[in-house]
Design a protein around this nucleic acid. Structure first.
Lengths: 156, 156
DNA sequence: GTAAACAGGACCGACGCGGTCCACAATGTG
DNA sequence: CACATTGTGGACCGCGTCGGTCCTGTTTAC
């Protein structure tokens, strides 16, 4: 199922949310807004900062803000930031020694075109595409929760 | 890293090998040829048979053979057969109840376009593309067709 | 100087995957 | 007809990785 890590999912949520809150925002605040546990948000933001997708401001009244507008951030960047380089199989990208059946494996390294195709696809799609209004978005508006969050979406 | 399961990798190897051995081939034989442990090969072949990518023949002198020529089998099919449906995040495809932050998650379901893009990319590429001439391929490959292969990728 | 907030780790439990094994059903062969 | 061969379906288990938490600095505004 091509498992994408949950952290990456969180990262997208956080980034989109970060876009809604213009200016510097703290990770506790983002945690509250998104419903993601605070330590996890912090972890994600650290990784995103390391990848220079967000810029951090330390100290009191510090926080994070987007380094680029959403439409300039391809999902591929987010995935790379959290999950590391995008590649399907372990025995690619010259991961020598990993594949014990080196001598036998007839398609060694042949995943490369597949990886390339996926990277290309993921580079085309930006975060702006992911926050775009779904027609059915109002269906998800849960009644049993005021959900302050969705304001950010409705605004757009 | 978009981790693809090792089993899927094996599946591709086995399928390509199966193409090389024309006619019915037993799983022990394939195991020996590929260097993959026999029980694992059997497991993979079961899944592939269930997905109708290979056809099985039971009983003595039984075995497996390809249901389709390699160039008719997109990698997406193989991945689906082994790993299940292709989708990145868990909280997509109406996986209700999975996402506990339903009420809060602002981009619920927004992975869909990404999944679609990836499926599309993986459907373009067939197994024939993956057995395509590696520099060292002549060491393993048996029947060498002119390999029309890369056309689909070169388009991009 | 103090509090707020990020930085960078270590740490742990849970889940899934890779891998193995077993009892059973089907089928060709002597 | 009996037996050997081979796929079928399932259970089972250890290990690695990931999600999640916590703790100790370090930076900076007030």
């Amino acid at each position: 199922m091509l498992r994408l890590s949950k952290l990456t999912d969180y990262a997208v949520v956080v980034l989109v949310r970060l876009d809604a809150c213009h200016g510097v925002t703290t990770s506790p605040s983002l945690a509250q807004d998104t419903g993601i546990p605070e330590p996890t948000v912090a972890k994600v933001l650290k990784a995103l900062a390391a990848a220079e997708l967000v810029v951090s401001q330390r100290g009191a009244r510090g926080g994070y803000r987007l380094a680029l507008p959403l439409h300039r951030i391809p999902v591929a960047e987010v995935i790379s930031a959290i999950d590391g380089p995008i590649s399907l199989a372990a025995c690619v990208d010259g991961a020598t020694g990993g594949c014990e059946a080196q001598g036998l494996c007839p398609i060694r390294g042949r995943w490369d075109p597949v990886n390339e195709a996926i990277r290309e696809a993921l580079t085309r799609i930006t975060l702006a595409d992911m926050r775009a209004p779904t027609p059915a978005s109002h269906l998800f508006d849960i009644d049993h929760q005021p959900a302050p969050v969705r304001a950010s979406l409705a605004a757009e």
